[in-house]
Nucleic acid binder design. Structure first.
Lengths: 212, 212
DNA sequence: ATAATTGCTGACCCGTTGGTCAGTAAGGAA
DNA sequence: TTCCTTACTGACCAACGGGTCAGCAATTAT
């Protein structure tokens, strides 16, 4: 009664494989990871992998798609339904979310997108349409609400909500490149920049901010 | 009288090769670039390349080093010798410099560092010591001067001069990933963020900004 | 001219890797 | 128990790419 050499689990395989691939890509980057390696991590033969994904490139795309969509949708829904003031939301839930991104697996995707994205235009298109633009739109609507409610004055932040995300990207890149050899306290850093930006657009002054 | 098959130009070769390598790496990334390809671009045989650089990895390091050092030293010297007020320098020369970075070859280095940096700790160490920390120190001293002169109030910017560079990195990454398919006006974006940050720390208010 | 030096070439080597496929065995049906 | 379907395996292949090296030819010394 030898234990079976494998189990048939059609349902779970794709997820197992993309998860393994995410790990592998994260460690070595796309070109440098071997398909065999991904298969090994997933506890599966190379042949099976090619049964579910036609090429290595397909696998890459599947990895990106499967790990991104859920997160952004959650944030978007939350912003639209919150009872907090705009500033309250920025200083509370948004900051909490933003601080945690550089420590999450999401940072790995950033590296992959930067390193390999240019070679996969259809993938980055999808990414922009389904992730980035949704996220930015949510932030923008939050800022607009703040302006309507008299919390914020008019400012360039309405056109460039990106600014509020900018320190998150910076923290991710910093840790990708320098690891923890050159410590940057990403929590305090992100908080500090968001704080300064909010101060700059607070409606207690008189003139408009940054609409030059 | 056939023209000679090649010319002996020991002096120029290394530069020619690193230049060609920069191009190639920029287009394909490190792993995906073939040494043969670099040699071909440089108008040189593969064998010669290996005469000047022991391995592909050595070549990579040489590329990074040769293209970075000059730039940062120039900026540093300029900041230390300028006659402008701190704010004047930020809004003038600094902004001009910052705007032009995302369009320059420097952006390519950013991609290389993000994509491959983690695999070359000695290289990123060198990069941090000789480039990043110099740049940040220069910015910090400029901000401190602004505080001493009463232009700026005390703020988190003293601890995190990074914030002022953040939109530059963002613009670079954006263009690397999305090209010009999702247009971000990097000039206006960078200017807007620097403007908001400067407003936030202007000394016309009463309390300290962002030292929470 | 001739020889000595050395920058340079490119064919070759061999380990690696994306991708294939004939065969094996798990699990369900009858 | 037997048969059938199909999830799964892993040996194999052809191409590729980093790295080598024996020899060639541009330049310099004599």
């Amino acid at each position: 009664m030898a234990k079976p050499r494998f189990r048939r689990r059609k349902e779970d395989r794709p997820q197992e494989i993309t998860a393994a691939a995410l790990e592998a890509f994260a460690e070595k980057g796309y070109s440098a990871t071997r398909v065999t390696d991904v298969a090994k991590r997933a506890g599966v033969s190379k042949g099976l992998l090619y049964l579910y994904f036609k090429t290595k490139e397909e696998l890459f795309k599947a990895v990106v798609k499967s790990f991104v969509s859920p997160r952004i949708d959650a944030l978007k829904a939350e912003i639209e339904s919150t009872e907090l003031t705009a500033e309250g939301y920025f200083r509370g839930p948004f900051l909490a979310f933003a601080k945690q991104v550089p420590k999450s697996p999401a940072r790995i995707l950033v590296r992959l997108m930067i390193a390999e994205g240019a070679k996969h235009p259809d993938l980055t298109d999808w990414y922009h349409r389904n992730v980035v633009s949704h996220g930015l739109a949510a932030l923008r609507s939050l800022i607009e609400r703040g302006v309507r409610d008299g919390e914020f004055r008019k400012s360039a932040l309405q056109e460039f909500p990106h600014m509020v995300v900018t320190p998150v990207l910076f923290a991710i890149v910093w840790s990708l490149v320098f690891g923890d050899r050159a410590g940057l306290n990403s929590d305090r850093f992100i908080e500090a920049q968001v704080d300064l930006l909010l101060r700059a657009i607070q409606a207690d002054g008189t003139d408009e901010a940054g609409t030059s």
